[in-house]
Design a binder for these strands. Structure first.
Lengths: 217, 217
DNA sequence: ACAATTTGTGACGTATAGTTCACATACTGC
DNA sequence: GCAGTATGTGAACTATACGTCACAAATTGT
């Protein structure tokens, strides 16, 4: 039975909310938080200013809802990928290609993610750290648990799972950003395998070990 | 002969400029561009608003000067490190520890760098992309040239030098940010060797090759 | 069909912050 | 010491943008 006893009115309202969020997302990704006005969002979503404030407490709340929603969408997808019953490396590969696809679909959304997790949105951080960031941290922990499994199964070297997680994320971010700035540098598109290859095998030729430099203090 | 024929007045002026920039840097790194007012900068630097505008065209120009200066400082240092007459891996190791030290000294400056190169400072990007970013791009090319040398000398595998550069940067950024958020996760401090180790050797155990996953499409 | 209630509207209030400019002050050469 | 220039000052101007609220429109129940 339909537990979601949403009246027509409520469904309409939800739809309005969607439209506002979608309009806002486009504007925010294109211009950044501080360079988007509530008037612009009102214009684009074809509602009046007042209506925006019927749906969201204020601008920050709107932005916050937006980021949280996208974070949950991303984290949910990645969580399921890492949960699967497959080889460790296979799960990581899917994690990578999922991430690439997600940011390819939500193109410049990644700028907002970065702005939120690393950037200078200082005013907002306080709230976002406690919501969106919590979601992302949970995901990080899940990744780390897969890494730990990889270490236990001797697939990975005896490295801190958190470090492995950082490495994977750092690599993908760097490639994603470079791809965003110079798409022509990747004629075949951004491939998960390319990143996974560097992540797993590293940079050095397998015969020549990296002993000398790594052994220094 | 003193080519720098700076009058006492001019030296004074330069000193004033320094004080303003230093005050602004502290504020910007602590609060981000949009959350710092010219009034605050005036207060902290102990000058009047009007004086700021005698030195800088406007707020953006001030910020721009600041970032450009720091970029040049960073890039100059790293350029010299990469220029040295040493082993490829040794130069990269110095590049890494330089970077760590620089961001350790200029602690939260890295947030601004990231905000500039990746983040949401959309208004500013136009100008900064053409100055600060040019400096950073030159540095990237220098790093890539060292990577190319490494490939030629068979120290690295036959990988695109640009990809190697991206990998190195991605790794260091990820570790730096994690260190900033969770310094306790690195009881011995952030070591260049730790990053270099992952960069060179990758994640997988050397015996078990990463064949299966990397070979997939 | 009409009243009651809920929802949508956008002009306006208010606050903030970047920038200017007329004036004060300090310095320079005579 | 004094005219002339350069520099420093901060109150005031202006622009912008968030958020409100009295009113309008639409919807619901009777």
């Amino acid at each position: 039975m339909r537990e979601k006893k949403l009246s027509r009115r409520e469904r309409l309202k939800a739809g309005y909310c969607r439209e506002i969020l979608d309009a806002a997302l486009e504007l925010f990704t294109a211009n950044g938080y501080h360079n988007v006005t509530m008037h612009q969002i009102a214009m684009k979503s074809e509602f009046s200013i007042g209506t925006l404030y019927n749906f969201f407490k204020n601008k920050e709340d709107l932005y916050h809802s937006l980021v949280l929603e996208k974070c949950k969408e991303y984290a949910g997808m990645q969580f399921r990928a890492l949960q699967k019953d497959a080889d460790v490396l296979e799960r990581i590969r899917e994690f990578l290609s999922n991430g690439i696809r997600f940011f390819l679909d939500n193109t410049s959304l990644i700028r907002i993610f970065i702005a939120e997790t690393r950037g200078e949105s200082f005013n907002l951080r306080s709230k976002l750290r406690n919501d969106a960031r919590r979601v992302m941290n949970e995901l990080d922990e899940k990744v780390a648990s897969v890494m730990r499994e990889g270490v236990q199964k001797k697939i990975f070297r005896r490295l801190d799972p958190v470090h492995l997680t950082l490495a994977l994320q750092g690599l993908s971010e760097a490639f994603l950003f470079h791809w965003m700035d110079y798409p022509e540098a990747f004629p075949d598109g951004l491939q998960a395998d390319m990143i996974l290859d560097i992540f797993t095998r590293g940079s050095t030729a397998q015969t020549a070990a990296a002993g000398p430099a790594a052994g220094r203090g």
